[in-house]
Design a protein around this nucleic acid. Sequence first.
RNA 1: GGCCUUAUCGUCUAGCGGCUAGGACGCCAGGUUCUCAUCCUGGUAACAGGGGUUCGAUUCCCCUUAAGGUCACCA
Length: 526
Amino acid sequence: MISSSNIRVRFAPSPTGYVHIGSLRTALYNYLFAKKQGGEYLLRLEDTDKKRFVSGATENLLSVLETMGLLHSEGPFISQQLTVNSLPESPRETLRAGQQQTIESVKYPGIVEVGDYGPYIQSERLELYRKYAQELIDSKKAYYCFCSPERLDAMRKEQMTNKQMPKYDRLCCQLSSEEIQKNLDAKLPDTTIRFKLPDNETVWFTDMVRGEVSFNTASMADAVLLKSDGYPTYHLAMAVDDHFMRISHVIRSEEWLPSLPLHVLLYRAFGWDAPQFAHLPLIINADKSKLSKRQGDVAVEDYLKKGYLKEALINFVAMLGWNPGEGSMQELFSMDELIEKFDFEHVHKAGAVFDMKKLDWINAQYIKRLSVDELYEKSLPFWQEKDFYKAAKPEQQSEEYLKKVLFIERDRLNRLDAVGESNAFFFIDTLEYDKELLRWKKNTDDEIITALTKAQEVLTALDEQDWTQDNLSEKLMAAAGEKRGDLLWPLRVALTGAKQSPSPFEVAFVLGKIESLKRIGKALSK
RNA sequence: GGCCUUAUCGUCUAGCGGCUAGGACGCCAGGUUCUCAUCCUGGUAACAGGGGUUCGAUUCCCCUUAAGGUCACCA
């Protein structure tokens, strides 16, 4: 694979069934960094927890990342999408040139893997992890542990009640080689391999966002590397994979910081150079806790379903923990601008609260910039779920009509799922409203009738082909004269039946001549 | 509880020894052809506290406080 630099980063999610908004940002920062540096951004699937297997999660993950525009150049792909344009340029070209093979995933039907450092799905790399766990056993940097979950649990509880730090007591570390062999021969069910931590050693390292950080091994426990089911834990898998996949920079969430010394020590035990690390601040709830399901939506899919534009989501999430610096006051960034400007200099250290109000504002900005055609395309699925839309007449369900409505709704919309909601009168045949609503200030019934009649005359005189917003505005304003409210208010109510709505010109334009006159007639009869 | 991390308006943030501490969201007020929205103008609001270092600290150091993360055969 041709790459202009040695920079290789990865996004390594575990398929849990949905894509967490924090994961989206982690993936984004990895992506931005790789693109900025001319490196590779790859995807690796961390599916080493058999208990948490969720059917369909992998496909969902892949397709969400794809729709968000975060395309990896190596890793698993949905094979159907491979034939379309979802693959970034370089692998697509090599694939076309026949230089690269796609490999069918054994475990996930319909998923293929592309790249020179595969497989990219951890459950397909088990032999590798076992081999390197064994290597650490041989070099006495790891040891077999035969303790049962029950014993570990009891031990932990006791330590907690004694206000001690929960930590493995190294019981199995003292086993003689005969005892170990006997246990191995007996194939004890709870056999794991644990890393043997050096005693009381301070581990230093430099984090790209946090600077110098140090830990002492005294406050750490011997972590399990290989589980009793033969699967690796995150720690082992991550070290082995990042090494063999030539990862240069590990960019991940801050929650990994406490296990960083373990990872550094693991690299050292293997005699490998460790990659650079960057630990990103957490995205948090209003109460400063880790962004969680209980306090609102955390899945990218949820936000997409609510009618947030992917560009708005990317823009918003990018600014959570990073800014372009240099006194920049820019708020809106395209993906290309983000790539151009992204750096770790300006990645924040403190967590950032996920502020929905700001997201709404950004989303509104992106909606305003959409053409009516684009807005129509994007909003159609949302229309189709609305009861008032489903109940509307066919001509009001038409593309032409919807686009007229969208033209005047565009500036009023925060989210696509609210489409039409404040303007349902466009789709309702018989408006229900109190006749008192037609009264502007202290006008008399006669004044209202005069106003509506005048409006009726003006609209009747206007030909269908002259039925434009500008003409309507011009003629009606002329007819209204000084006291605009006297005419405009009752007219607007007659057309909408609502206390609040767009202007009568806009509404009349969308409704058309026939429907507008019909509604004025009904108002007069009140 | 141990360890680690963090700390500028309510929120996202600018600031990298000298500024009336800037911008954005929100909120409030006013304006823009009737109401709503958009838009425009203005306003509200912050350096957690205490010690140092320095001629001078929001900025560097220490302590305190507070918040968060993490201590699994989950990632």
